[in-house]
Each structure stands twice: as C-alpha cells, then as structure tokens.
Computed example of a mutant assay.
Amino acid sequence: MLSSCGKSLPGTHTQVQKDEEDIGSIHIWGRNVFMGYLNDEESTQEKIDLHGWLHTGDLGFLDTDEFLCHGQRRGCHHTPGEKINPNPIEERVKRHVPIARSCWWARMPPTCVPCSLRTLGSLGTHVLTSEAITFCRKLKSQSTRLSDIVDDGDPVIMEFIRQGIDAVNAEVTSDCANIVQWAILDKDFSMAGGQLGDLLLLRHHSAKMYEDESESFNAAS
C-alpha cells in the first residue's frame, strides 16, 4: 500500500492503542527497539513500558491488511486545568469540511483554526482540485478558484464551512477545545512557509504566525 509505512518486519510487532475514533498511539516491539537511555531509567520508563513496547508518540492506524498508516505526531496544548490534544479536533474539521486540506487548532487565545483548501497549489495555481470543484457544485456553488472563496467570500461555501465548524464544536467534550474563530487562508501550508515539519515545534510557531491575523478570523456560532 503506497500511502502507508508498510508492514512490520519479521520478528517485530506494531500495535495501535486507539484513543480517538480509529486513530491511536503507535507502539512498536522487537529487537529494533532501543534498549533505553543511558543512565536515565526515568526517561526510559516513560518511553518503554514493562512489556517492552516503545511508545513512539506518533498517531496512526492499522488497516485491514495490517499496513501502518501514519497520522500526526501527538502534541498537547495546556489550557487552565486541562490538556488538549489538537490532532482529533483537526481531523474532525477535515471530516466535516471535506474541501479543507490542512488546518491548525491553535490556542492563541481565542482558539483559532486557520485552514487551507484543496487547490492545485503544487502547480503554482490557486485553482481548486477537481474533487473540490465537484463538491462545490453539489452545494450549488460556482467557485472554481481559491479567490472565489477567500476574496469574494462565496456565501454558500462560507456558510457550509461555518456549519462544519459548528458540527466539530458539537462533538468536543470540553469547552476548552471549542473552536472560537476560523479562517480560510489564501495559500496552503508548506515546509518553506514554516507551517509544516515537526508538529511539536511548529504549532507554537504557526500560532504566532497567524496571531496578528486572528482579528479578521470568522467567529464560530
């Protein structure tokens, strides 16, 4: 399966401890796992449990053929009295808003979610992908370019996204995880733009990046 990391090698095992829908924490076991941190038993016990499973800190799932599909690296935001994992919230946004390609749940405050849409950006254009255009047509929208939505404020698509954000908020189990504001960006996230890479490091960077723009974000209902 080309979109996966492959299967476990002979003599090794992979398991996923599900904690959010079908996605969960990836644990691996085998001779390929490191024995521990030198002279640091406390850190070793944090990474390797009593049964020898290494807790990688990554999220993913095993498909029906036991291929490992890697998701995002676990990262938590600390809010007053609560620790929020943003990954499930971001996955819900993409599920309820299928034309969204990427998004960040950012604790600024207020809690903001900048999103990028599915475009042919890799070809140097802001034209929506054929799948996104087809979806727009189902909603009776004539948008074909990102500018139709971002600059012209396509009311059909904007209302659909607003309803999608409301649906995400209806599923969260804590008020601290509610999305307060959201925005559709005029370009996709990228490595060069500083939004992609090690998520544990870049969440804070991206939150700062959009902090000045947050006043123009749309308010969730």
Rank of each mutant, 00 (worst) to 15 (best):
M1Q: 13
M1W: 12
G6L: 08
P10H: 03
H13P: 05
K18P: 00
K18L: 14
G24R: 09
I26P: 01
G30M: 04
L38G: 01
L38N: 11
E46G: 08
E46I: 08
K47G: 11
L50S: 06
H55V: 01
G57W: 04
F67N: 12
C69F: 07
G71E: 03
Q72A: 01
H77D: 08
K83F: 03
P88C: 07
R95G: 06
V97T: 11
P98T: 06
A106N: 10
T111Q: 00
T111Y: 00
T111C: 03
H126E: 09
V127E: 15
L128K: 04
T129R: 14
S130G: 12
E131G: 10
C136T: 10
S141I: 11
T144K: 09
R145T: 04
R145Q: 05
S147D: 12
I149Q: 07
V150N: 10
G153A: 10
V156H: 00
R162I: 11
Q163C: 03
D166K: 09
A167C: 15
A167W: 11
S174I: 01
C176V: 03
F189V: 11
F189H: 14
G197M: 06
L199W: 14
S206G: 13
E213S: 15
E213L: 12
S214W: 02
S216A: 13
S216C: 14
S221E: 07
